[in-house]
Design a protein around this nucleic acid. Structure first.
Ligand SMILES: [Mn+2]
Ligand SMILES: [Mn+2]
Ligand SMILES: [Zn+2]
Ligand SMILES: [Zn+2]
Lengths: 138, 138
DNA sequence: GTAGCAAGTGCAAATCTTTCGCAATTAGCA
DNA sequence: TGCTAATTGCGAAAGATTTGCACTTGCTAC
């Protein structure tokens, strides 16, 4: 038995569209479904937006992809293996910064110990004002 | 000079719709625009949904109301004066718990000191798994 | 290899949520 | 008591996401 493709291992059929959606998510880092579609269209112009939505959902169900919320609007998608940083979103300029997850370790532990709550700090962004904008406000 | 209505103090016209929208937000605690509209309709059946949206925006601009994001979808509105707790949203059962802001004080300070980022911990919910659901998973 | 079947796709239409244009109404001021 | 600009209601528009359905295609069993 030869080694299986990662999608087949998850019990999914291997279609060009599905492979390309996964590849696009991996290349892009927090991309919207529309952005994923654009990327896929570079090599597969015919792909339908609803196919992208359906595959993102499927890939999320098997744990290859995850979504998070960076702004007031819709979700953005990450490859599951790289979701290892916090998103710092500036409400003033819209910039999305990053910070290592460890920054939140203490906070996460407190919530676990005091509330029994297991936090996924990457699902929602951390909202506030970035250094540049905070400076400008003075 | 008599004391002014709080809306007039903010430079806003006093309309029945606007007063009712504010009252509804205060009574409901994190309500969607649609829920606010429903509540207002109890006493003012004719109110239009777009009036609710416009008033929520107006009230937010003058600081009487704030929105935050508790789920994957749209925003929910709080009276500004009560937005003093974190929201702990369980991805498994949907429950929305609360925790005092102080729980995040350390986290907020770290982000300020190390990244110059001024965090508003109430804008996005803290996402994860509640104690009950974490228990059930075992 | 080939046939059969279920999963996946494209397309168009349906939903849902939020925003907008505009004419009619109304609050606040003179 | 009027004037004027802000506000409202209404319908339509704009986006974003989902859905139904006929067609295609990947995988499995023969
Ligand atoms: Mn927001
Ligand atoms: Mn989500
Ligand atoms: Zn900024
Ligand atoms: Zn739960």
């Amino acid at each position: 038995m030869a080694e299986q493709h990662e999608l087949r291992e998850k019990g999914l059929r291997l279609t060009p569209q599905r492979e390309l959606v996964l590849a696009a998510v991996r290349e892009l880092d927090h991309a919207t479904p529309e952005e994923v579609a654009e990327r896929v269209r570079l090599t597969h112009p015919g792909i339908n937006l609803s196919t992208v939505y359906r595959n993102l959902e499927t890939l999320e169900n098997v744990g290859l992809v995850q979504h998070s919320h960076l702004g007031h609007g819709g979700a953005t998608y990450h490859a599951a293996e790289v979701l290892t940083h916090l998103h710092l979103v500036c409400g003033a300029c819209g910039a999305v910064g990053g910070a290592p997850i460890e920054v939140a370790a203490n906070f996460v532990n407190t919530l676990a110990d005091d509330y029994g709550f297991k936090t996924d700090v990457t699902h929602f962004a951390v909202y506030g004002t970035c250094a540049t904008c905070a400076q400008a406000e003075l």
